[in-house]
Amino acid sequence: MTFHGPRAEPDPHASHGHDDQAHDDHGHDDHHHGGEPHESPIVMLIPLFVLSFGAIFAGGMFYDAMFHHGEAFWGDAIYRAADNHVIHDIDKMKKDPSYAWVFWAPLVVTVIGFLIAVLTYLINRGFGARLAKGGGPLHAMFENKWFFDEIYDVTLIKGSRWLGDTFWKVGDKKLIDGFGPDGVTAAVKWGSRRLSAMHTGYLYHYAFVIIGAALIFGAILFWRSGGL
């Protein structure tokens, strides 16, 4: 609920947490500290009246045009396939008593909601606070918005974070760079070091390699020329 009015300056001495009654009555999106809830000023009421008029009567006013003269009313605004008869079917369902609950359910739920609101906020103030104090799983579920935020946090948010970190630190750094540019660079470095280690500067090492290579090369030539 929103209460339009002069904005109260936050009182540093107000004990928000202990003002249970006010807290409960105001709801979480209101930050008046202390004071009774009051009616909205006329500047808010006028648009609310207009909107509520539309909310109550729009269905009745447009029902005939939308359902019985649907094609003329909607025109091409909403695409309907040739074999889509949903509006016609709704009209048929309305005449079928076994579907009556579908049509009455929204009204019944709205009235129940209205009555609970009257009970809680007008007749029996503090009922909500007492209900909250009582706790229980049902209260916990509603208090935590069906735990949707928590479920999203555990699955989607934490999951995406983990995926992002894994892609970055394992995928990019360890796998792609590790086996790619960094790995190749390391392999070349290692190979170069091994090769340079062979360049000892001792004549007999070079002589050994030359004679060994000449022997192997000669053997290959001998073998290819049909020897043995």
Binding site: S160, R161, L163, G164, D165, F167, W168, G171, D172
Partner: peptide, 10 residues
């Protein structure tokens, strides 16, 4: 998808 998720963690 991959780059977007990694971008988020930077």
């Amino acid at each position: 998808v991959y780059a977007s998720l990694v971008a988020w963690r930077q």
